[in-house]
Amino acid sequence: MDKFIRMDGLVVPLDRSNVDTDAIIPKQFLKSIKRTGFGPNLFDEWRYLDHGEPGMDNSIRPLNSDFVLNQPRYRGANILLARENFGCGSSREHAPWALSGYGFRTIIAPSFADIFCNNCFRNGLLPITLDASSIDDLFVAVMATPGYRLKIELEQQVVVTPSGMTYHFEVDAFRKNCLLNGLDDIGLTLKYVSEIKEYEERRKLKEPWLFV
């Protein structure tokens, strides 16, 4: 996994709550057996006017100019500002793959769905939770200010606005460490091989029917 230490990026506001993973990446794109290539179909049903299918040339499809990602002022955005319960619904990891494939590295919202949040951390994408009123302030600022950028400092756990104001955020210490150092979970777990084996032996005595 790539390290995530700090970033500075353009912010795009997605002003709706309960954005589900079906909306983030519609199911027809889940037929892929690869991990990459989902970025062009991020928010497909909102982003394009026609119906998207895998294998289409996305560069010639008609864009929905009303959708916020398509507005010229937000081109190249890599921080997504969102509303509550972002990423609810299906467990598809294709959702964070699509978000990072598009170029996002941070999502800021008042709350995230659990599985989605886990999936983000495992793909070097930082989900930042701020309280609802800070989120409201950020929405106002982003919409009022073309070219609005934020700085994210993971070590200090702060979001820094252009005027120098900071918002502190909480992040799980284990996840933070993994992001800062680009650590891979499987590698970390395999340090405990002997403990896993000992555990299995104990379990076999207690619940032998699980191991027949």
Partner: peptide, 20 residues
């Protein structure tokens, strides 16, 4: 509980998951 694909791989490889 449901898991993402990275976790699917994690369970395949280690029979475990890291959780809180």
């Amino acid at each position: 509980f449901g898991i993402g694909t990275s976790e699917v791989e994690h369970v395949m490889a280690t029979q475990c998951l890291l959780m809180k």
